[in-house]
Structures are given as structure tokens and as C-alpha cells.
Amino acid sequence: MNPVNYLYLAALLFTIGAAGVLVRKNAIVLFMCIELMLNACNLAFVAFSRMHGNLDGQIIAFFTMVVAAAEVVVGLAIIVSLFRTRHSASVDDASLMKL
């Protein structure tokens, strides 16, 4: 199968994720969309790795997974504490950092 098709899939997934980030208010859903985008990138990396015949892309994919895991840990903790104080998981309620 032509490896370029994987890239099309990655682009599709990334766009779905981006659209989700832009339209959804719920922080959890937002998070899942971000994960989707990250994984779209991972897929692209692996596809590139395959196309170019070296392992660099796969190594980067692992890095991304590690970073994503760390991010989920920190992010979920923030969302949980936000939910505790505001009783809502909507990101629009957390707009206090503006000037």
C-alpha cells in the first residue's frame, strides 16, 4: 500500500482533533481532541520513518508518547482541581488570567 495514504489519514485525524479543540467546551473532550492531534502526528512520524527508511521518526514518536503521558498527568490534575472549585469542566469559565 502506498505510504502516502497514512499521511492522508494523519491529516484527517489532526483536522478532526483541531476542530474538536475549537468547538467543544468540555475540558475532558478538549483533552481527548488534543490527544487525537498528537496521535495524528505520531502516525505521520511513523509513516515518514517508513518512507525514508530510517528510524528517526519512530524515535520521535516514542518521545511524543512520553510527553503526552506527562501532559495528561498534569492536565488531568488541573482539570480535576478546576472542577472541584467551579463545579464545571467548561474551559470558558476559566478565563481569569486575562488582563
Binding site: A18, V21, L22, L30, V91, D92, A94, S95, K98, L99
Partner: peptide, 17 residues
């Protein structure tokens, strides 16, 4: 310019994209 900093994560995301 200050008005652009409205605190909504989505609008920041739009400008990023």
C-alpha cells in the same frame, strides 16, 4: 491589542492555527 487577550482558550487556539 489588549482586547485580543480575552482569556478564552479557544480564541488563542484559533490564532495559533
Amino acid at each position: 491589542l489588549r482586547k485580543l487577550q480575552n482569556g478564552y482558550a479557544r480564541s488563542y487556539a484559533v490564532s495559533m492555527f
